[in-house]
Design a protein around this nucleic acid. Structure first.
Length: 207
DNA sequence: CAATCGATTGGCT
DNA sequence: GCCAATCGATTGC
């Protein structure tokens, strides 16, 4: 299998933007869930004060960050899991956080995994998304092109407009706090902290 | 609505 | 023990 940046040098910010519109799929015993990626954030490695690998920090939990590109790095926080894709060659610990998806399959299963929640609240945040899709630490370090958890690069929905904004939850980090490294499909209601009105086509280009 | 706060799990010092 | 790339309920305009 193949992912679009493995044969050409691309910046992590560039990869983060281009991941929008691809489909994230998770096959589990309970069923399959899938959705279009609508929100990402770039983390630029050793020079990025907001990145876990800032300053070359390397602990057992960060191992996947230093590994080859095209694999998942999963971080646990307050009992939730945050899903990242490693972007650069081994030894350059940069990644993209997948923050939100627009569900396209397994809606009932997502709702069952998120009791009391519905609509955009199923997947409009990094912890909500992994909970709705049933993503576990067993996917840590696995390839982004191999089931049960993978990104389908065979087709892509094109965003009409990609918006850049500061990353969420990065206080007191100087210019890294305000750097426009968060990318969203403008007008898509599944983007975290989205405040209407939603675009008629959810921000996707129509032909 | 916008702002604030408490919950709560795992990893690191 | 302390802190964290969050979430959801509650409070107060």
């Amino acid at each position: 299998m193949h992912f679009f940046w493995q044969d050409e040098q691309s910046s992590t910010a560039d990869i983060a933007q281009k991941l929008l519109g691809y489909t994230l799929v998770h096959q589990s015993p309970a069923g399959t869930t899938a959705g279009l990626i609508v929100e990402t954030e770039a983390y630029l490695g050793v020079r990025d004060a907001a990145c876990h690998s800032y300053g070359g920090k390397a602990t057992p939990r960060l191992e996947a960050m230093y590994g080859p590109p095209g694999h998942f790095y999963i971080y646990q926080m307050r009992g939730l899991r945050l899903l990242n894709v490693i972007t650069q060659p081994a030894g350059d610990p940069q990644g993209v956080l997948i923050r939100a998806i627009e569900p396209i399959a397994g809606l009932d299963l997502m709702a069952a995994r998120r009791p009391g929640q519905s609509g955009a609240n199923l997947t409009n945040g990094p912890g909500k998304m992994t909970q709705a899709m049933g993503i576990e630490m067993s996917a840590y370090g696995t390839s982004i092109t191999v089931p049960p958890l993978f990104i389908d690069f065979s087709q892509q929905r094109q965003p009409a407009v990609v918006a850049a904004s500061p990353r969420i939850g990065i206080p007191n980090k100087g210019h890294w706090t305000t750097a426009p490294l968060r990318f969203t499909v403008a007008g898509n209601p599944f983007v975290s902290q989205f405040k209407g009105p939603a675009d008629a086509h959810h921000g996707w280009r129509v032909d």
